[in-house]
């Protein structure tokens, strides 16, 4: 089992997504929540950072936070899985520990 990392800040505002992806081990997972969901959008200056990391890290994004911000699923980087709060709980249970990049 590996860690699941949560990122709750926009990558255009803070360095948390960068730091998370620098330190996230191969085989770990990243869940984008709150303003962190902006990091899941394709065609941004941060998209490549996420796309490159996807070869070794599984990416999830919280659907309710996408909807609240008017981000439709067709705007997302392909391969990022949209999840709900119940899945959030399952993901935490399935990983060894959780690290929140605040």
């Amino acid at each position: 089992m590996s860690l699941i990392h949560t990122v709750n800040k926009s990558p255009f505002d803070r360095n948390t997504l960068d730091s998370c992806l620098r330190l996230a081990a191969k085989g770990s997972s990243v869940l984008l929540i709150e303003d962190g969901v902006y990091g899941a959008i394709k065609g941004t200056e941060k998209s490549d950072l996420v796309t490159n990391a996807m070869s070794s890290i599984a990416f999830y994004v919280l659907g309710p936070d996408l909807q609240a911000r008017g981000v439709s699923s067709d705007k997302l980087i392909s391969g990022i899985k949209i999840v709900g709060y119940g899945d959030f709980v399952d993901l935490v249970a399935q990983h060894s520990a959780t690290q929140a990049w605040l």
């Binding site: 709750n8 309710p64 709060y85 119940g86 959030f88 709980v89």
Partner: peptide, 19 residues
């Protein structure tokens, strides 16, 4: 901050999942 809302929704989901 949204933290309190996210924490609440997460907590609710924990209970709903039977944890």
């Amino acid at each position: 901050h949204q933290a309190a809302d996210t924490a609440y929704q997460f907590a609710l989901a924990v209970i709903n999942k039977g944890h």
